[in-house]
């Protein structure tokens, strides 16, 4: 159990450190579930002993599972569900308004840099518009020279 919680917490921290807000959101979900596991294991785990009072008895007898942590977890799950649902909508709305989910590019509420020029983060997977245009242009040029006409 302890290792599970540790792995979940480590994974969530990794996700939380991401630029991508959706990943941050996943990190939060994972972290809140890790917290639920902490409460669950802190309550002490007993196998196969539900906290039911035997017929005719007034109190619980013997070793039994603690019911309170489960009530706490239930409350925590409901609350974190609400909060995370809100956070998801917030991220979506932000994407609609700002057109990005990269937290490094959200600087609207910050004071402007001195040089006002925000450096574009390099992304190897994205073809820059200028490169694409050049490539298309080259292709047209090649085809035209193959046809024997002079590219103007």
């Amino acid at each position: 159990m302890a290792f599970t919680v540790g792995a979940m917490a480590a994974g969530s921290v990794y996700l939380l450190l991401s630029h991508n807000l959706v990943r941050v959101l996943f990190g939060l979900i994972l972290l809140s579930n890790a917290a639920n596991f902490v409460i669950f294991s802190a309550g002490g785990m007993v196998e196969g002993a539900p906290p039911l009072i035997a017929k005719g008895a007034r109190d619980l007898a013997g070793v039994h599972a603690n019911p309170l942590p489960q009530a706490l977890i239930l409350t925590a799950i409901v609350i974190s569900f609400g909060l995370l649902a809100f956070a998801l909508v917030l991220v979506y709305r932000t994407y609609q308004e700002l057109g990005t989910i990269d937290s490094d590019r959200m600087r609207l509420a910050e004071p402007p840099y001195d040089d006002q020029d925000i450096p574009e983060p390099e992304n190897p997977h994205r073809i820059h518009v200028r490169d694409a245009a050049r490539r298309v242009g080259n292709r047209v040029d090649n085809r035209m020279s193959a046809n024997g006409s002079d590219p103007a």
Binding site: L16, A34, A35, L72
Partner: peptide, 24 residues
Amino acid sequence: LDGAIKYAAINLVSTVMFLIAIGT
């Protein structure tokens, strides 16, 4: 929205820490 994202993210983390502390 920009401010709210930052506010929400960090406060949710603090809430979870509070919850873990309560559990322990």
